[in-house]
């Protein structure tokens, strides 16, 4: 397929997906109990007067019929206007732009760490005995199952309180990001390692690996020329999900380590019913997911051109 048509199709599909996500968010928000006008005025505790509430409703078109509201909402989104945060009284886009770098930095570092851990774990497990493999499986399952808040707390106790090596809260320094990133990475690496080990083992025992050995390749060459590619494919496939998972994981991790970021803003926005903020972050997460999937597919096409063209077998 021609690259332009392919890209056009992708962008079209992404636009439709974003519209669906926006619609789902719009509907979901109507189901949240409580008066949005109250939230705008600072929540139920603010004791806002009836006139003030009415003014807020007027300002945010909350009195209009639901379809008109939906139309206005989509119209604003289409022009890139995410609205104004109820709680912070600033444009959502501006708040997000401030928070985004911190979260992206955290999730990217976490992804890299997760890939490294998973790769090393898979490589060790694939080369060890049956008992070693069983142990590997157990470690992977435990890693995948640990909740972020507990893991974060444990890492703080060990590395900050006891050993004093790393700060417990974000300090804006390099040391400050290590613990949050590792907290986010460990459960992810458990999932990735399980996938990688499976396909690595299959590849290393396949006839083409035997053929490679028969033409004089060393174990290391077999591993890097054949095993690694086959192991990376399913894990790459999962990376789109992994990014989404680390953004939702960031909600907890940023809170635990008191790091500013999108995740923490989302948590705050949900708690204070700051609907434009929730909408903005949710839509943005969907967009990131789509961009990551696009990148992943491109890398996959590079590793396995046959599958990308759809003529695999």
């Amino acid at each position: 397929m021609h690259i332009i048509t392919w890209l056009a199709r992708r962008v079209g599909a992404a636009a439709i997906l974003l519209w669906l996500v926006a619609t789902v968010i719009f509907i979901a928000i109507r189901f949240i109990p409580g008066d949005p006008a109250e939230a705008i005025m600072g929540g139920p505790g603010s004791q806002a007067s009836a006139e003030a509430l009415e003014a807020a409703r007027e300002q945010y078109h909350l009195n209009e019929p639901i379809l008109v509201q939906y139309g206005l909402y989509l119209g604003k989104l289409a022009t890139g206007d995410l609205g104004t945060s109820y709680a912070q009284h600033r444009p959502v886009a501006q708040v997000m732009a401030e928070m985004l770098p911190a979260t992206l930095q955290l999730t990217l570092i976490a992804l890299v760490i997760a890939w490294l851990i998973a790769f090393v774990m898979a490589a060790i497990a694939a080369r060890s005995s049956r008992i070693g493999q069983a142990m590997g499986t157990i470690i992977e399952v435990i890693a995948a199952a640990i909740p972020h808040f507990w893991l974060g707390a444990m890492l703080i106790i060990i590395f900050s309180t006891w050993l004093g090596w790393l700060p417990a809260v974000d300090t804006g320094t390099v040391q400050g990001i290590i613990l949050p990133a590792v907290t986010l990475a460990i459960p992810l690496s458990g999932f990735l390692a399980q996938l990688m080990r499976d396909s690595l083992l299959t590849a290393m025992n396949s006839p083409f690996a035997l053929a490679a050995r028969a033409r004089g390749a060393s174990e290391g060459q077999v591993f890097f020329r054949h095993g690694f590619r086959h192991a990376a494919l399913p894990a790459l496939n999962l990376t789109g999900w992994a990014v989404a998972a680390s953004i939702s994981g960031a909600v907890v991790v940023e809170e635990v380590f008191a790091r500013p970021g999108l995740g923490r803003s989302l948590l705050g926005a949900v708690l204070s019913r700051d609907m434009p903020m929730v909408t903005g972050i949710a839509l943005f997460s969907a967009l990131i997911y789509m961009v990551v999937m696009l990148v992943v597919e491109t890398i996959e096409a590079f590793i396995n051109p046959a599958a990308a063209r759809g003529d695999d077998q």
Binding site: S206, L210, A211, A212, R213, A214, I303, N304, D312
Partner: peptide, 22 residues
Amino acid sequence: RELRGGKVAMILQDALNSLDPL
């Protein structure tokens, strides 16, 4: 490995997987 790469060679059955599909 030296023998395998040069003087002794093997032809495998084509089980679809004797050549790395990637």
